[in-house]
């Protein structure tokens, strides 16, 4: 019975995508407009281009820059956030600068990063990291400040070391919020990955789709969009997998996962 219910909910979830794809396929089948190629053409292009001709030359570099920028943001955001959240002086000193920096629209920084760091991988990675660091940082600040008073008391009466308090109390207790920040940053990282490749780049998904549009290779542009959608969904699924594992205690103790 339970199995049947699950099967049914999967079927319901698949209904809209399948109908959309079928409609797209049928309605675009004998389309003569060069701007709206048939789905068949797009998928053929997808197979020929992304599997696997450009996988190594464009997809891998894009994802590598994304991963490096994102991990850099995590590596800086969490420790700095914990420091800002727990040490008042640091917070006072850095807060105005942080508020200023995070208010600059991210895309506006692309030209600046090129001027400062050239057109290689470095400016792209740095820019992704720069933009992604704020949601993680600010959520960590908030999280380590919201630690239960009771747990602080435990840390003090049992004379836990500063290190123990940070790693056994503050960070785990802030983890749900930190993950919320990381999830937001991941989608921002994905956007920044494309944006940084549309200016001063010679490879990558953003570079290919932009060039495709400019050189009237419309099917390539469309298949690039499909790839982006698939990649985004996969990245998010991967993130959810990691989050569910790390925050298992959180979901179970708050009754949000069985």
């Amino acid at each position: 019975m339970k199995r049947f219910a699950r099967l049914r909910s999967v079927a319901v979830s698949l209904l809209v995508p399948v109908v959309a794809l079928v409609l797209w396929w049928v309605l675009s089948a004998d389309n003569s407009s060069p701007f709206y190629p048939s789905l068949e053409t797009i998928l053929t292009n997808f197979r020929e281009t992304w599997l696997f001709e450009r996988a190594g030359s464009d997809v891998v570099p894009s994802l590598t820059r994304l991963a490096l920028g994102y991990l850099l943001a995590v590596a800086v955001g969490i420790p700095l956030g914990a420091l800002l959240g727990r040490v008042r002086v640091v917070h006072l000193a850095l807060q105005p600068a942080i508020q200023f920096a995070r208010s600059i629209p991210a895309t506006g920084l692309v030209p600046v990063s090129i001027v400062l760091l050239g057109i290689g991988d470095t400016p792209k990675i740095v820019l992704i990291a720069f933009v992604c660091v704020f949601p993680i940082l600010l959520n960590t600040v908030d999280g380590v400040r919201g630690v239960e008073r009771g747990l602080e008391d435990v840390g003090q009466t049992f004379r836990l070391t500063r290190r123990q308090r940070i790693f056994a109390i503050h960070l785990p207790s802030a983890a749900p919020q930190i993950f919320a920040g990381m999830r937001l940053s991941l989608s921002i990282a994905f956007i920044m990955m494309i944006v940084t490749e549309m200016m001063g780049a010679t490879s990558g998904l953003g570079f290919v789709t932009l060039t495709a549009q400019q050189s009237f290779q419309i099917p390539l542009m469309w298949s690039g969009m499909i790839l982006l959608g698939v990649l985004g969904a996969l990245l998010n699924a991967l993130f959810v997998l990691v989050e569910r594992r790390v925050l298992r205690w959180h979901y179970l103790s708050t009754g949000r996962m069985r």
């Binding site: 008073r149 009771g150 747990l151 435990v154 207790s173 959180h250 103790s253």
Partner: peptide, 9 residues
């Protein structure tokens, strides 16, 4: 408050 003095993680 035991629920706030034990670490759920």
């Amino acid at each position: 408050d035991y629920s706030r003095s034990l670490m759920p993680w």
